[in-house]
Structure formats: C-alpha cells, structure tokens
C-alpha cells in the first residue's frame, strides 16, 4: 500500500496542474465564443485570395 503514498500526491499535483491550465484558458478568452471557431476548420484557405473588388467609388 505504500505505492499510494507515492501515487496520490502525483494525482493531487496533476489536479492542481489541470485547474491551473483551465483557469489560464478561461482568462485567455478561450471560452468567450464557442460558436464561431468550429466553423473555421470547415473551410480551407488554400484557394488563392481573389483580388479585392474595388467597391469604393
């Protein structure tokens, strides 16, 4: 059972790391908009950018 004395502190350490990472992500605004980013990957940007139409007259 002495293995517990070793494993449990590690799990607590991992818990602290997980909470720290989560707080960092929230502070960085990773959770601000959960709707737009998923769309970005649905489209590839490989197509060459067309020349910007000159719409200002």
């Amino acid at each position: 059972m002495t293995i517990l004395l070793f494993l449990i502190p590690i799990s607590l350490l991992l818990l602290a790391v997980a909470i720290g990472a989560f707080v960092w992500a929230v502070r960085k605004g990773q959770f601000d908009d959960l709707d737009t980013p998923p769309l970005d990957m649905l489209r590839d940007d490989d197509r060459p950018m067309p020349p910007r139409p000159d719409e200002r007259d």
Partner: peptide, 21 residues
C-alpha cells in the same frame, strides 16, 4: 458581464475537477 461569466466558468471547472477527485 464577461468577467462574471468567466468567473462562473472557472467555478464550474474547479467544481468538476475537485468533485471527481
């Protein structure tokens, strides 16, 4: 409002991680 929402998310995350342990 944004700050308040972020605080709530952090509370929820801590609750989820802490509660599972």
């Amino acid at each position: 409002r944004r700050r308040e929402r972020n605080r709530l998310i952090i509370r929820l995350g801590v609750a989820a991680l802490g509660a599972t342990q």
